[in-house]
């Protein structure tokens, strides 16, 4: 009970922030200050983003023959082709399955690891480094290791055999392979998210935790009502970054299955890469990129706009 009082105390100040907001004259200076701070990044993004996005959209209306050096305007043909592509159903399903799995699992696992690593234990830095190291290795090297682990009659097969299961077609079947991809991707880069969570956890106000303890709150209650609300902005952020990031994973697919058998393990980002750089179909790849961009943007906007339900702290 007491802890709830403390928790609401933590987010309390925000509720009555900026009492002068009503008077527009008082805000002009504040707005100007804000825009000044935002200007460098916004201008940079507008300029370079315009080149990047503009170029992408321009290409999406073209039929490009790279080798012959010709470009023909084809209107919406490339987009129409997306709709009629028989493989697109599987590819989109795979993409969403993979993104959903990786973003949710990634956020939970990193938070768990961060909590584990946030303890003040001797030698904890060594463990932090251990989690972080894979992020420094190239994906190619990481994938190679996993290929050995996952091969038929390899380590994974002998592990599952000890409980009389398997052998499983780790890299040969649709959803199972996507789960395997998620695990490989997760273990490689989880260190980054753990870092972000660690920073957030270290920013948790200890006076509030102590106050909670004094009030007799248990570990779980303390975590749920004091720690969680304070790190929820970080959770939201990691989740959003994971969503955006997992939409773009393709290297693993390229190195492990090449999207096959058939298109069973193809995701949208891989299809873009394949169309653009293996098949030289830049126009179609650009149209797919526009689709991917819109999907990620929409997913992120939805998460962001519904943040008030998810994030305890952003009450205003």
């Amino acid at each position: 009970m007491g802890s709830q009082v403390v928790a609401s105390g933590g987010s309390g100040p925000r509720a009555q922030r900026r009492p002068g907001r009503r008077g527009p004259s008082r805000d002009a200076g504040r707005d100007r200050f804000g825009y000044l701070l935002l200007a460098p990044q916004t201008l940079g993004l507008l300029l370079i983003g315009a080149v990047a996005i503009g170029g992408m959209i321009e290409l999406s209306f073209m039929k490009v023959n790279v080798l012959a050096g010709t470009r023909t305007f084809v209107g919406l043909d490339n987009y129409a082709r997306i709709l009629s592509d028989p493989d697109m159903g599987v590819i989109l399903f795979n993409t969403f399955f993979f993104v959903g799995l990786l973003s949710v699992a990634g956020t939970i696992v990193s938070l768990g690891l961060a909590i584990l690593l946030n303890q003040k234990l001797p030698g904890i830095n060594v463990f932090r480094a251990a989690i972080f190291i894979p992020a420094l290795i190239t994906t190619v090297a990481w994938t190679l290791v996993w290929r050995f682990i996952l091969q038929p009659q390899g380590l994974m097969d002998s592990l599952t055999a000890t409980v009389d299961a398997g052998p499983f077609p780790w890299l040969r079947g649709g959803w199972l392979t996507l789960i395997v991809f998620a695990v490989i991707q997760l273990t490689k880069n989880v260190g980054i998210n753990v870092m972000i969570f660690l920073a957030a956890l270290q920013g948790v106000r200890e006076d509030l935790i102590d106050a909670g303890r004094v009030d007799g709150a248990g570990r779980w209650t303390t975590f749920r009502h004091i720690v969680l609300p304070q790190i929820s902005p970080a959770i939201l952020m990691v989740f959003m970054l994971m969503v955006a990031g997992s939409f773009k994973v393709f290297e693993l697919v390229l190195l492990l299955t090449n999207g096959g058998p058939g298109v069973q393990t193809t995701v949208l980002a891989f299809e873009i890469f394949r169309q653009a750089f293996r098949l030289n179909d830049l126009g179609y790849a650009a149209a797919l990129s526009v689709l991917l961009f819109s999907l990620v943007l929409a997913a992120s906007a939805i998460i962001w706009l519904s943040r008030r339900r998810l994030v305890f702290h952003e009450t205003n």
């Binding site: 090449n258 096959g260 058939g262 069973q264 098949l279």
Partner: peptide, 18 residues
């Protein structure tokens, strides 16, 4: 060739390498 080779690899994987 790149389209044909990709399609061929893919089709072999799906149909023959089973």
């Amino acid at each position: 060739n790149s389209a044909v080779a990709t399609a061929l690899n893919r089709a072999l994987d799906e149909h023959l390498y089973q």
